[in-house]
Amino acid sequence: MSIIVQNISKSYNKAKAVEAITFEVKEGELFGLIGPDGAGKTTIFRILTTLLLANEGSAIVAGFDVIKDYKAIRDSVGYMPGKFSLYQDLSVEENLTFFATIFGTTIEENYDLIKDIYIQIEPFKTRRAGVLSGGMKQKLALCCALIHKPKVLFLDEPTTGVDPVSRKEFWEMLKRLQQKGITILVSTPYMDEAALCDRIALLQKGSILKIDSPENIIKNYDKVIYDVRTQNMHQLILDLKNYPSQYSVYAFGEYIHYIDKSAGFNPKDLAAYLEKNKHSEIEINISRPTIEDVFMDL
């Protein structure tokens, strides 16, 4: 195993950030921590990259203990925090050279690892990092995290605030890095990115709700979800929440996702109820569940 986490807990004063977290990441795996802001993702990352001490529990990263062998871990991992943390006044090339020097290497020595990413920002190598676009900053930060050829790569919400095209490109880069044998632990609040991981841990309020592959999580979901839409979406949510057998109601894109707790549920009965409440243009169709649906239910 590349990462082994056993019963990690961390509190800030009396507030629990993470509680009894346990999971393992295999070598060469792309593993995702999925959850909203405040779920505990960044705290876990800081503990595993030796920037923070846990109150309880233990963790092994790349074969090293996070407390006893913290210096060895810092040499063996790459870390890209959620906030852009490179030197804004240095150029692209100066930032990369600086980080290579810190780790006792050179850009040339590990250029094969960063080549696919670096060629996209090389035309701007003399430009100061602080004036780069969000997508370019992201690529530069990834290059700096990879320049010493780490065994494990930690990426804390790397695509937050980045445009959809850059997000897609970034995940394609991660897949290529994974093929080179690097273990990747990535966190994201975007549920659609969960499907791009080999396995995921769904996090909420410092606890793990479920760990499995995205495919298995969806396959084992046992509830029927309906896409519901009418001409008055705001009123629709209120009326669906008042339906006697409703189990769950929440907005999902252009539809409302509705789940009924009755085994004998008939969509025609729901349509009749909505007509009675003066809805028109009623659509009720079975929907395919997603990671977000499972997360909302959990």
Rank of each mutant, 00 (worst) to 15 (best):
L113K: 06
G78V: 00
D37A: 13
D65L: 09
D198Q: 11
Y221P: 06
I284E: 03
L132N: 02
N55K: 09
D192K: 09
I256H: 00
I184Y: 03
L177P: 03
Q6R: 15
F265L: 03
E292K: 07
K180W: 09
E169W: 07
T50E: 05
A251V: 15
N216R: 12
I184D: 03
Y111V: 10
S245W: 11
F23L: 12
L240S: 04
P214H: 06
T42L: 10
I282Q: 00
I44W: 01
D227G: 07
K68N: 12
P158Y: 04
A59Y: 03
K210N: 10
D293T: 04
L270D: 01
E254P: 11
T290M: 06
T42K: 06
V5R: 00
I184Q: 00
D260L: 01
F45V: 10
Y273T: 10
Q138H: 06
Y221D: 07
E27A: 14
Q88P: 10
G78N: 00
R229S: 14
G181H: 02
F295M: 06
I21K: 04
L240E: 00
V228E: 02
P267V: 05
V152I: 15
Q231N: 14
A251D: 11
N277G: 08
P164M: 06
K125I: 07
Y70N: 14
Q179T: 12
D65N: 15
A39W: 02
C197M: 03
F252K: 13
L33I: 05
V131L: 11
